[in-house]
Design a protein around this nucleic acid. Structure first.
Length: 426
DNA sequence: ATCACGGTTTGCA
DNA sequence: CTAACGTGCAAACCGTGAT
């Protein structure tokens, strides 16, 4: 049976979220910046038209921003996460089979639905999400996830589709016409490194890739590209994954708001990152076997000396205990710390994760795995979940945090914090 | 010659 | 006033020592 898979993608998601609560921004050039107000991570159409690239450092855009009056927001992740949950919750009512792919994208399996009805059904979905949440979305439909992604790309970039492109009702010849107009780099899984290599092979458009030989492309590149080619030809190789698989590795890394030289500040930052990683670890009910801690100076600063180092620490037992993990991380940090450098970033990685039911119990079952501290951990997690992140924390995180993120223009957390709701009326 | 390993780099979104 | 460039994950790769 031919499948029908839809990809629903929010337009310029972060920018659109800001516009919901600040409608004067509609029609104006708006960007949202990454952590530390470093790079552009979301652009309104007006900004894209100016040639601003995804991931471009904000400081490089000073002149252009002044010239065109570009409004820049610091990223407000609590707001975007909450808006995303609302969208996903609504989408789940339109099909029983759903994969939340990213904060702004979602696959719905419409297999078994009448393909002729899907375009109208998708228009209905768009209209409801606009009406109830305020966000604009586009829908792409195809026989595979890769085709759904491509259909979505067409829906986004060609007004004649009115936000919905359905390959399932399109003639093959017409599909190929579109494919011949889309650059191969737009295909899901074809990134900036594969693109020039494909160009060398004479593959420039999606149609070129569709007609390439999957087997020989596999031997030349990888199995990934073989799957991609087959998917463009309508053969499902990438299944819908309704249950998010447990992560094999959990990373918490962040750049500092200002360079840091003293060990004490690094210790605070690393403690916070361990906290953050452990929250994720416990949410997926896993235990870590090793912890990796690393620090580095800025690779961009040519005037100051560069230094980076990291250390993998095997843990005496599989654990989710924040005290034990913090202790290990700080021990590692002190090993790799060198005086006299301006550090810009630290990271904590938990790996060799095992899920709760596969966990090996410790023969000696010491206090570390025992009930006492586990109970304390559970209580800390619960209180933080109810009262807000960071309500309770280990003292090693520190009270004043001069190294914390720069966020010079963050909007209010309108939907997740009562105290910030007031700003809506100001 | 081949494998398992760990650590590092690459690639992608 | 100046300097200022993200994060998270997995797969691929690569050197090493063991078999």
């Amino acid at each position: 049976m031919t499948r029908s898979i839809a990809l629903i993608d929010c337009n310029n998601f972060y920018v659109s979220c800001e516009r919901v609560f600040n409608p004067q921004l509609v029609g104006k050039p708006v960007v949202v910046l990454s952590n530390n107000d470093g790079c552009v991570v979301a652009r309104s159409n007006e900004v894209k038209a100016q040639g601003v690239r995804m991931g471009q450092p904000w400081f490089q855009l000073n002149n252009l921003a002044k010239q065109h009056g570009i409004v820049a927001y610091s990223s407000n992740y609590p707001l975007y996460a909450d808006m995303s949950n609302r969208v996903m919750g609504m989408l789940a009512t339109f099909s029983p089979d759903i994969e939340v792919y990213s904060i702004d994208e979602c696959f719905l399996d419409f297999s078994g639905f009448k393909t002729q009805d899907l375009t109208l059904y998708s228009q209905h979905i768009r209209q409801k999400i606009k009406q109830w949440i305020g966000l604009p979305v586009c829908v792409g439909i195809g026989a595979t996830k890769t085709l759904a992604k491509l259909a979505n790309y067409l829906a986004k970039n060609n007004p004649e589709f009115n936000g919905v492109c359905n390959f399932s009702v399109m003639m093959p010849q017409q599909q190929n016409d579109w494919f011949s107009q889309i650059a191969v780099s737009e295909v899901w899984g074809i990134g900036r490194n594969l693109t020039p290599k494909l160009h060398q092979q004479g593959i420039h458009t999606v149609l070129d890739l569709k007609q390439a030989n999957p087997a020989s492309m596999r031997s030349r590149f990888s199995v990934i590209i073989e799957k991609t080619i087959r998917e463009i030809n309508g053969i499902v190789c990438i299944e819908l994954e309704e249950m998010a698989a447990a992560k094999k590795q959990i990373v918490s890394s962040r750049s500092f708001g200002a360079p840091v030289s003293d060990l004490a500040s690094l210790e605070q930052a690393v403690s916070l990152y361990v906290n953050c990683a452990v929250e994720k670890l416990r949410r997926q009910q896993s235990y870590a076997s090793t912890l990796f801690v690393s620090i580095r100076t800025s690779p961009f600063n040519k005037k100051a000396a560069y230094y980076k180092n990291g250390l993998t620490i095997p843990l005496p037992m599989q654990t989710d205990n924040i005290k034990l993990l913090t202790k290990a991380a700080l021990w590692g940090l002190r090993k790799i710390y060198r005086k006299g450098y301006k550090y810009q970033k630290a990271a904590v990685v938990l790996s060799e994760l095992v899920s709760a039911n596969n966990r090996q119990s410790d023969f000696f079952d010491s206090e570390l795995s025992g009930c006492k501290s586990d109970k304390l951990m559970n209580i800390i997690s619960k209180i933080n979940a109810i009262m807000g992140k960071g309500t309770l924390k280990l003292a090693s995180e520190g009270y004043r945090q001069p190294w914390k993120l720069r966020q010079s223009n963050k909007s209010s957390s309108y939907t997740t914090n009562w105290n910030e709701l007031i700003h809506v009326t100001k």
